[in-house]
Structures are given as structure tokens and as C-alpha cells.
Design a binder for these strands. Sequence first.
DNA 1: GCAAAAGTGTTGTGTCTACACCCATGT
DNA 2: ACATGGGTGTAGACACAACACTTTTGC
Lengths: 231, 231
Amino acid sequence: MPKSTTHPNPSHEALAVVLQVRGFVLQVLLWERAREPFLGAWSLPGGRLEHGETLERSIRRHLAAKVDVRDVAHLEQIETLSDPGRHPERWLVATAYLGLVPAHVDPRVPADTAWHPVDELPSMAFDHGEIALAGRERLRAKLSYTNIGFALAPPSFTISELRALYRAALGHDVSATNLQRVLLRRRVLEPTGDTRAPGRTGGRPGAVFRFAAAGLEVTDQFAVLRPPDSR
Amino acid sequence: MPKSTTHPNPSHEALAVVLQVRGFVLQVLLWERAREPFLGAWSLPGGRLEHGETLERSIRRHLAAKVDVRDVAHLEQIETLSDPGRHPERWLVATAYLGLVPAHVDPRVPADTAWHPVDELPSMAFDHGEIALAGRERLRAKLSYTNIGFALAPPSFTISELRALYRAALGHDVSATNLQRVLLRRRVLEPTGDTRAPGRTGGRPGAVFRFAAAGLEVTDQFAVLRPPDSR
DNA sequence: GCAAAAGTGTTGTGTCTACACCCATGT
DNA sequence: ACATGGGTGTAGACACAACACTTTTGC
């Protein structure tokens, strides 16, 4: 049995794919590297896991340096990457998280940090490009069977506004009619009772809705092969 | 900035929830601990991540000591656990995998290793009980929207045989009629053309099927909010 | 013939998309 | 009045569950 000193442990970092719909486009928060390797390339925010903290606490701590953490409405683990070649010099394991920021906030970010459309990623450091895309896919999948939209939307909104968010996140058009019906049938949305005044150009005032729950819930379980007579 | 020596890295281990349907019951491969902490309690197979290997290679290497790795038909990452208190003495991060063994093989396992029904777990070490249940839930979820059954089933089988596997894995009854229709409609199964002779007690010979694909495929994407006119 | 097991026909239900139409507002 | 955007009604497609019924075998 080898002595433990001959087998050091990997460094472990937490990374976050922080997504927000900004200007009708799904964007990811990136950080421009100031040193080699990948000097000048963009990377996901994150950093080292310290003794005594969980990965989730760690990513929250690192994100605090980039955005107001209270603005992150949802955070979930995506995947842990361990390819020995993912960092050219060191042995570095990374656990990636998905973070979502609602559209109504505009967090102040440091000068070396900026939002980029997920569909037009700049030159990315390490494997961070693939991780960002994995985050986008996780969001897209969960939009269709959970209430995860709550983490992209402001506290209240009209169906049109919500539709714009879904369209940006999903990358394809979404019918306002069907979006409303699906989310109401599942009781994901509920009307606030208010209406939103129309713009200069007129139009009927839109009803205002909110998400019924503040945390992630699965809303479309057992699509098939459900237990018998579970209606 | 603290020196790196004052901040050691965590040990990192890979664990596996290896599931197989044995005797009409979903069972998990467990390993009886021979030393403290948790002496005599049962734990998931796995072990230390070594330099130069990925987590997946690592779990395959550790599993090789318990089962013939070629018997593991599917392996996927579940989650990484990082609670500092999950090990009473050391700082130990664990990445859990789900492994599936088809029902037709009976791997030779060492004396300290045994299969246990997932629904009646023995006294478990660390957080391994929760991890085992998370593995079961991952399997159950994927049974309903992917072809993951291929990793539980033998190369060919009748619908009755497949139904028994699904019932054991899902934990509730499954209608053979509907199982057949769902999996054929999705082209997850295909007939081999053969039939299986009935038992002593008679009955119509059953048609023999196989899974159409050997790897994991999502078969029920876009349950809702799919792109317009994507039929 | 009878029991047992496999497989098909059929009906009902629920969910979703698409599209036509109606509603409420500003100019 | 009319343009604009919001909302409802409705029909069709589809997938699924449930159950009755038929088919094929052993005894």
C-alpha cells in the first residue's frame, strides 16, 4: 500500500454557470482570465474548495465576489469533471453548478466580469465552454417538466413577459396561449389579480401572474409507466 | 492570501450504486466494513481517486475488485457529496455513480460483499444509505423517458420477463400490454422474430424482443413546450 | 375441453398544439 | 374607427391506461 504522501489529493474547485435572460438573450456570466494558462480567455466564475465547507457553500462564496448572491434564485449541481488533462498544469477536479438570476435584477459585476450570450461564447478557458453548454441544456430540460422558470422571472409578470423569457432560454419560439395554459393547468402560475397597463400603442391590459412556489418542484412526473390507477 | 500548504486538498473517492434485479427484487451491491468507523456496517463499493485517472475510470477500477466490470452495462454519474461532516475523521469528498447489471448475469463477488434489496437496506456507513436511494430514484426516473432498461435486461427476453424487471425496478405493478405498446411505439424494443416455448403449465409462446440500442438514449424528449411544428 | 399465458382491439381520458375568434385599450 | 396586444373557445393529434376479447399452447 503506497504511503498517502506519494499520492497527493487533487485540488477541488467549484464552478458556476450563472445564467440570466438579458435583453431577450440567454447570457452567462464570465470572467476574463488575467494570467496563464488561457490568459485573456473567458472562464466560469468559481474557485477553490476550502476545508470545512460544502461545494454549494463554496460556490456561493466565490460567486459573492462577482454578483450579489441574493440575486441567485436557484442553484443546483450539474456534474463533476475529473479528466486529468482538463488543466494543463495541475490536477484539478471541478464540480459545476447551475445558477439562475431573475431577469429583473442587474447585478453589479466587477470590471473583469461580463455577460455573454450562451449561443455565442467567446474563446473559453479549459473545458468551461462545454460546461456552459451543459448548464444551458439542464435549464432547457427542466423548463419543460419543473417550475424552474421561477428563477428566471421577476416576482410578477404578464404572460408576454414570461413568454419572452422562455423563448430566450429555450432558443425557440413559444406560444403565449399554450404557455399560459400549460403553466396554469399545472398550477405553476397563479394570477395576482392585477393587470398591467398597455403601452403607448394600446392593446388590452395583460393579467399579472406570479409563480406559485418559490423553490424547485417537479410538475410533470410519471409521464409514462406510472403506478396503476394513480389518477 | 494563505499558503497552499495550510489548505490541504480533500481526499476524493468514487462510489457506485450498483443495481441489479435479482429474484424479482431490485438489489444493490454492498460491502461490509471491516474497520472503524462504521465497523460492521455496509457501504457502497468504491475507493480513492488516483492521480491520472478520471472518476469514471476510478470507479471502474474499484468495481473490478467486486464484480466483473464487463457485467456493468451502464454507468453514469449521480452526484458529488461534500459535506465536511460526512466522514467523522477525514475530509473526504465523494462522487457517486449509478451502475446497472443485467439480470442474466450472476457476478462472482468476494466474501465481504453481498446484494441487498434496496427497499430494505441494512445499517449503512456514512451517507451511503441516502446515496443508494438516490441511485434508485435516478433509475426509476430514467426508466420512464429513456431506454435505460437495456442495462437491466438480458440480450433478449419476452414481454413478461421485461415486465418483471420493470416492476422490480419501479416498485409498482406494470401492465404487460402497455409496457409493450409504449416501448414499441418509441422503437425502444424490436422483435427478434423468435418465440419462447411456454412452460409446463401451457400458455401461448411469447414473442422474443431485444433493445434496439445498446447505449442510453432519451426517448421522450420535449414532453411539453417543444419547438413549434416539430412533428 | 379447460386452464394458462400472450397478444390485440377498443374505448375513454387527459394533455398538448394550432388556429380562429373575441376583448380591452390607446390614438 | 382601427390598430395593437391580451385572452378564450375549440378542434385535432397523440399518448396512455384500462379492460374485454382472442390466440396459442400444455394437460
